[in-house]
Design a protein around this nucleic acid. Structure first.
Lengths: 118, 118
DNA sequence: CCGCATCCCTTTGGATACTG
DNA sequence: CAGTATCCAAAGGGATGCGG
């Protein structure tokens, strides 16, 4: 959004370098929240219900899960669909193409991390 | 380190998926701290002194900068060299190959973010 | 020039409990 | 089953000021 103020410096320095390094923060802050990428990953791999996600991450609390799901939907990384013709109605989450594209980069990051740190 | 306890779930679920999604967090938490990637990026592009980094990011305080630099050194992403034969002695930071490799992934992430969000 | 110590404030994540 | 409301503890980041 053009309205968002980016409070990075500029001052007669290498603008190109700074502009680039500035925006990285925004991306990292958006995807870096705890559990977010794991949740996205799990959804993309078939864990698509609230309850199953809870089981998958026992140390993750309900409201954090709810919060993350909401953010992921807002960012357009996952879709939320409600299946009405079951009792009770089910909510199904699925990764969007945007989410899948992000995951492939996150996967590279993960591979790098494992190679360097494990 | 093998001593680090990974408190992710497992329980008869898809172990492969969970193991993968678990470790992503560690990587993200290591590199996701505010300013860290920007600092790494700036160092890799020639801003290699404490004072010039400060000028590059006016809204970044000294002790956060110091902390980040320390972490980056600990992770082996940058090197710290002290030039003794100048007065006063200079401290020069430079990116390691490990740091450069990480930056290329971060760059992809940045490109993705700009494409999707800006 | 290169940082660290201290204090403080904001943000984030989690526990408990309750609804449609 | 799928969440939300409220409260709380912990961590992270920043301001100020000082030392090597």
């Amino acid at each position: 959004m053009a309205t968002k103020v980016k409070e990075c410096s500029s001052n007669a320095y290498n603008l190109q370098v700074l502009a680039t390094s500035c925006e990285v923060n925004e991306v990292l802050e958006k995807i870096g929240s705890r559990w977010k990428m794991q949740i996205l990953h799990s959804i993309a791999h078939g864990t698509q219900q609230f309850s199953t996600l809870k089981k998958a991450f026992p140390s993750l609390s309900d409201q954090v899960l709810g919060k993350r799901l909401k953010e992921l939907v807002e960012y357009g990384l996952i879709n939320k669909a409600i299946v009405e013709d079951t009792v009770p109605p089910q909510t199904i989450y699925s990764a969007t193409s945007k989410g899948t594209a992000l995951l492939s980069i996150i996967h590279d990051l993960h591979m790098w991390g494992m190679k360097e740190w494990d």
